[in-house]
Write a protein that binds this DNA or RNA. Structure first.
Length: 209
DNA sequence: GTTCTAGAAC
DNA sequence: GTTCTAGAAC
């Protein structure tokens, strides 16, 4: 086999940033923000520490350097969202969510920055949806508090596996949809009056030509 | 994490 | 008959 298995996909970016320049949105000596290779929304970045090679949140302790790392990621995440808003006019009023997956598939601690539209052909199944729109999506403040209070952050695997199987629920209005295609159609409609009206106007204009 | 696809659901 | 989900991947 090769040097990296699929679980180590993020190691490539961290080990050889120079080979991935087009996939890097922003980077300094401590953190790297890359475009998710399979974005689940119009904007979807991963923020990855460069100096601490921590495989998962389970490996964090109450050590001040670990608490500080997550606090730095939180601060940088907020900064990146502001930067994204400046460069993406469509994000001006929309929310950008920031968080970790409770049980990530890929090694190396990474925090998602993802826009609220969830408009992407890569968003395909229930696991995708529930991993961003339920308690499976862990805010950095939750991790920081757990580390300060208990010196660890160990998500219960059975609990979070069950969460991924929950019904498909719109993150805006709470309405439940039976199937992914129906959810995706609903999300497109429920994505805000202004966005919806604009799309309808564009459709009318297209069909009248 | 994705791809592929059998068979369930429609 | 087609769409859609969900489990295997050696």
């Amino acid at each position: 086999g090769g040097r990296f298995g699929w679980r180590d996909a993020l190691m490539r970016y961290v080990s050889n940033p120079e080979d991935y320049q087009t996939q890097i949105y922003w980077m300094d000596s401590d953190l790297m923000a890359i475009y998710d290779a399979y974005p689940k929304a119009r904007v979807h970045l991963l923020l990855i520490p460069l100096k601490h090679k921590i495989m998962s949140l389970d490996n964090l302790t109450g050590d001040p350097s670990h608490v500080r790392l997550i606090e730095d990621m939180q601060r940088r995440g907020i900064w990146l969202i502001e930067r994204l808003r400046e460069h993406n006019p469509e994000l001006k009023h929309g929310q950008v969510h920031m968080g970790f997956h409770a049980i990530p598939s890929l090694r190396l601690v990474h925090m998602h920055l993802i826009s609220d539209d969830f408009d992407s052909p890569c968003l395909k199944n229930k696991k995708h949806w529930n991993s961003f729109t339920t308690d499976f999506f862990i805010k950095p403040s939750e991790v920081i508090e757990a580390l300060k209070d208990t010196g660890r952050f160990h998500p219960d695997e059975r609990h979070f596996t069950e969460i991924l199987r929950m019904p498909l629920k719109c993150h805006r209005c709470g309405e439940t949809q039976s199937l992914m295609p129906k959810l995706k159609a609903h999300i497109a409609r429920c994505t805000g009056e202004r966005g919806w009206a604009t799309r309808q106007a564009l459709k009318r204009r297209e069909s009248s030509i």
